[in-house]
Design a protein around this nucleic acid. Structure first.
Lengths: 232, 232
DNA sequence: TGACATTATTGACAATTAGCTACTAATTCG
DNA sequence: CGAATTAGTAGCTAATTGTCAATAATGTCA
């Protein structure tokens, strides 16, 4: 509004905005994030890693830029991509990026034809990252986890057909705790979210599991009370 | 998506970013948002309204800018301020803002010493707004409502001491549906979120209501299952 | 003043939901 | 074939939620 004219204007206008995307997939019972090698002439190749990222164009929406960034790393489009937030880019001087907008994207297991040199790094064995990259991964992860029961996150991390045990494993990974098999399946079926296919998959030993697909149907939303117990 | 080196680069760097803040308060059983008059020499005064807003400085975090923006409209600081998201500024050409980062802020009822000309507009009688302002209000509102049961939104819209009926009214306003009084109180008390004061308030007729304050205490988080019924 | 309307607060019961144990089913392995 | 392993379910119990109804403390007004 009442910005003072010329000198203030010079320092406020002209911000460089990066749009970073943390692409997640599930590897076994671990989350993995896609990293690209950074070409740094001062270091040996492959020593530094970064999230897929583009510089936001003036005429481009952040959503479009996020899709563009994902395209620099993967052939396929993510099955879900959402904004996590915008924050000042830590260590701004280095690459002249002032502001980072972070997205999280989901990719079904083993689905990605990756571009040159990219790797999936599980979260427990994440390589050392620079501040902006680290903040980006953490922010994207937090945003994704916060939306687990609003968005079909878990289903977007799985291929179109999956077993209920796989689905439960993804939920356990996202929530960070074990779930009860019987209760899990009961509430899943009560919500009319999946439908059975006529296919079965035998995974090593044990009884073969039926494959299901995500097929949400009209369902009555139970009018529940207030969940005070979830407040910070 | 035209990719050309030097001229493309000129169009990607130097983005102008506005940080807009939608400040909400509760007026009776309606939400109201704070609007500032826009000085437009081409129109009569007071005909156009906008959210409090600042241009993001290169060395400034979005959070700091949001607080600064709130300060242009209110003497007091909001009791809660959180980022709703970043998006391309609709109608970008008009004021040369390319990107808008929106925050929502909460102000307890009647708490604000407002600056010159500001007004609280209830959402049902919102004046005509330009695209960026309208998108900002809607985005902030959606983000706030999405966090109702993660953040103490309702408590930050009330003064330090409040009656349980007031609290319930705020929740009903935020959730857009009526709640059962007995169930509401039972789960509120079960969560150990409020403590009674020794004051009562008589509001017209009827039995006086006891005043409570927000005083969350350590409480066991019940290990609940997955809430499939909340998925979009 | 006393009946009545109004708002607050709580109790009790029914219906629903979630956690748990234990069972059956269908495979592979040796 | 029998043990081990994974999938899928039934049924009991405990906890949570929805509902109705009772009691409490005021103001209103004839």
């Amino acid at each position: 509004m009442s910005e003072r004219s010329s000198s203030a204007r010079a320092s406020t206008r002209g911000i460089t905005v990066a749009v970073d995307v943390a692409l997640f997939t599930s590897r076994g019972s671990e989350l993995a994030v896609l990293l690209l090698p950074v070409n740094d002439p001062r270091r040996r190749p492959r020593e530094r890693w970064a999230l897929p990222s583009v510089i936001l164009r003036r005429d481009e929406s952040p959503d479009a830029a996020a899709t563009r960034a994902a395209g620099t790393a993967l052939e396929v489009d993510p099955t879900l991509i959402e904004q996590a937030g915008a924050r000042a880019a830590a260590n701004a001087g280095a690459d002249s990026v002032d502001l980072a907008i972070t997205y999280f994207g989901l990719v079904p297991v083993a689905d990605g034809a990756m571009h040159q040199g990219a790797m999936w790094a599980t979260l427990v064995e994440l390589p050392q990252l620079e501040a902006r990259q680290r903040d980006g991964v953490n922010g994207a992860l937090a945003a994704m986890r916060a939306r687990v029961d609003d968005s079909p996150i878990a289903f977007r991390l799985l291929p179109p057909a999956f077993t209920l045990s796989e689905l439960q494993t993804v939920y356990e990974m996202l929530l960070g705790r074990r779930l009860h098999k019987a209760s899990f399946r009961r509430s899943l079926h009560a919500a009319s979210l999946v439908e059975a296919t006529d296919e079965w998959r035998s995974e090593g030993r044990g009884r073969p599991a039926q494959l299901f697909r995500y097929a949400p149907r009209r369902r009555k939303r139970p009018r529940r009370g207030v969940r005070f117990d979830l407040l910070v």
